[in-house]
Simulated scan of single mutants.
Amino acid sequence: MNRLRVLDAVREHGALTQVEIAGVTGLSAATVSNLVKELDVAGAVQLRPSIRNGRRATQVSVASSSGLVGAAVFGDRDIRVAVATGPADIVSQKRMPLPADHAADEGMTRAARLIQELAEGAGHTAADLRSLVVGLPAPIDTVSGEVGSEGVLPGWRGVAVAQAMQDALGVPVLLDNTSNLAAVGEFKLGALQGISTGVFMKVSYGVGAGLIIGGELFRGSAGTAGEIGHVTIDENGPVCRCGNRGCLDTFVGARAVLAALRPSHGSLTLRDVINRALEGDPGCRRVLEDSGRHLGVALAGVVNLLNPEVVALGGQVARVGEVVLGPMREAIERCAIPSAAASVEVRVGELPPEEADVRGALAVADQLREEADRAALAAG
């Protein structure tokens, strides 16, 4: 436990001398000296000569050679993988397209191969990988460790993804929803930094949310908190892929947006719609403005319930900025309690849409690595 106290002090405060560590932890100087020697032998810390108050001292910092962490984040039609030394220090990354409705075994095989190739291409070996986080754009049941909906990502239903990837790569693996991971990315490095209660809305081919409550990601009792895309906003509305009627996703997801424009614009992709809206196309702008209003109506309930400080919009649709944000704000002001609506700021996320969930996955993978290190130190 004392070794962990020393390591935690250095992680929290940065590089410290042994005298400073003693002051922070309350341990004696002799005890700290012995603990630092043990941590140095274990490779958990780095020691550098320093000068403090005109005297020679040894500066203690967390070892930087603690291996790599990895992220494998799946979209509806692609996979993005990265290896890093930490969430802000990506060593190598790559994106690969995938067919729509791809099967789990195909996606996981590609992910494992790409992770190994990236590590080796950066001068490491697969053995340097210490942890991996996998993201899927679907509800994740943390009790079963599987996709939590029959109709969302049917090719992944019933697959123990984390265990399969752990078997393939031989490292601890955690599975999470991509909106949750993007919320972590914005909380660590983007628009939700320093926020105690915040909401991240990811709007691309589908829509989801990640909730930050008390400065931590909130997953709920079974891991499916934040599934705002499947909140009913019209009980007589279209049938959703999840089996319900009138879900938010049936009004603002890519299928609904493209269907609304097909009679006037023909076959478009979501990227086409966004680009045309940015160029001033009135039809594309109108459909995205409608999406903003629907998002605001759904968010008003979240604002009433959680009273967040910030709602950050991410995903591909965030590229149009005020086209969507303006109607969102108007709907929140109209539908939420005035005091709650007045206290929330609606803004665009700061990280690129294709990067927020990857950064969040790396941050969670870094936590997995720390937990493994702490367990090893505690075991002595």
Rank of each mutant, 00 (worst) to 15 (best):
A378T: 12
G86S: 14
S149N: 14
V348G: 05
A365T: 05
G107R: 00
G226P: 03
G70P: 07
D40T: 15
T250K: 02
R359M: 15
L278K: 12
L299M: 10
R130A: 04
P338C: 09
R77S: 15
G75Q: 04
G70T: 07
L270Q: 02
E330C: 12
M165H: 07
G296N: 11
L47H: 04
E20S: 09
E333S: 06
L261D: 01
G296S: 09
V159P: 00
G215N: 10
G14I: 05
S343R: 13
L211S: 13
G70E: 02
Y205P: 04
L181N: 04
G253S: 01
W156A: 03
I51W: 06
I212D: 09
L299Y: 03
G148V: 00
L278P: 04
T224R: 14
A259W: 08
L288I: 03
G321F: 05
S339Q: 14
I21R: 05
V239C: 10
G210W: 07
A312V: 03
T224N: 11
T58W: 11
A88N: 14
D167S: 12
E235M: 14
V317H: 00
R80A: 01
N304I: 09
G326H: 09
A379T: 08
E330D: 15
G215E: 11
L4F: 09
M108F: 02
A126T: 10
D281Q: 01
G283E: 13
L261Y: 00
H13A: 13
P154T: 02
I233K: 09
R3V: 06
F74S: 06
R276E: 06
A361S: 04
A9E: 02
R347H: 10
L299N: 04
A168E: 03
I337V: 11
R110V: 15
L305H: 08
E38M: 14
E120Q: 13
R113I: 07
V36L: 02
V346F: 03
F200P: 08
A318R: 14
T85A: 10
L299E: 04
V302W: 13
Q59Y: 08
L248W: 07
V287E: 07
A15I: 06
G215K: 13
G301S: 15
R293G: 07
